[in-house]
Simulated assay, not measured.
Amino acid sequence: MVTDESRCPCLSGNPYGECCGPLHAGAAAPTAERLMRSRFSAFALGLPEYLLLTWHPQTRPPVLELDADQRWTRLDILATSSGGPFDSRGTVAFRAWWRSDDDRGTLEETSEFVREQGRWFYVDGTVA
């Protein structure tokens, strides 16, 4: 169980209550990278509702079921392009580490984000 004082799953170095916690509670992410980090934390914590809320309506799946056996353990941000507080679009390249009882691996993706009405949304990604 993660508490506000726990280290944030996105590995920013900040406590969950100062990092992804407020975003999971409804605060708007100030940048595309912060949204990416909060989405990783949502995968790590099993929060499919948050993932759907932060997925752009034009590309959002109707349902999202997370694999309960897959544990997301590490996030490395590889590069960002735009996605700042005054941008309307941005990209974040990342590598996410996962493991299950029988396997382990990484997901490397370049994700596209758009900001509409002051909120960032994940649009889609290209897996490397």
Rank of each mutant, 00 (worst) to 15 (best):
G83T: 13
A29G: 14
C8K: 07
D101M: 08
Y16F: 11
D103G: 03
R37F: 01
G118D: 12
Q58S: 08
L78I: 08
E33S: 02
A32K: 10
T110S: 09
F113I: 15
D102Y: 09
R119K: 10
W98S: 09
L35A: 12
G118A: 11
P15C: 10
T31E: 11
G21E: 03
A96S: 04
S81M: 13
A68S: 15
A42C: 03
L47S: 07
L52C: 14
T73Q: 10
V123M: 10
V63L: 10
P15R: 05
S100V: 06
S100I: 02
L23P: 02
S88A: 12
F94I: 05
R7Q: 13
A68Q: 13
L53D: 15
C10N: 04
P85A: 13
W98A: 08
Y50N: 06
L52V: 06
P61Q: 03
G21L: 00
E109S: 05
T80S: 06
P62I: 00
S81R: 15
F86Q: 12
M1K: 09
H56R: 05
A79Y: 05
S38P: 13
G21Y: 00
M1T: 08
G84F: 11
T91G: 04
E65H: 06
V2A: 02
F94A: 05
G13D: 11
D101F: 10
T73M: 02
Q117D: 15
A93K: 08
G26Y: 00
R104Q: 11
C8Y: 06
V92C: 04
S82C: 14
P57S: 01
C19G: 12
I77E: 05
S38G: 13
E116F: 15
A29N: 06
E33W: 09
L52N: 04
R89F: 08
G90Q: 04
T73Y: 00
Y122F: 14
Y50A: 01
T91L: 11
A128E: 14
F40Q: 07
L107Y: 01
T91I: 07
A79R: 08
W97K: 01
A27H: 12
V63F: 08
T59A: 00
G26C: 03
L75K: 01
V63S: 07
R95E: 04
G17V: 07
P85L: 07
N14F: 15
D124H: 15
F86L: 13
G83V: 09
R39S: 04
C19N: 10
D67Q: 11
G118M: 13
P62A: 07
A96R: 02
G83A: 14
V2Y: 07
E112D: 15
E108G: 03
L11M: 13
P15F: 05
G26A: 05
E65Y: 00
Y16E: 05
Q58E: 10
E18Y: 06
T126L: 14
E33H: 03
S81G: 13
S41Q: 03
S6R: 08
L23G: 06
F86T: 14
E109W: 03
L11A: 13
R71M: 11
N14R: 15
G105S: 10
E116I: 15
F40S: 01
C19K: 14
G13K: 09
A29M: 07
L51G: 02
D76E: 12
L53P: 04
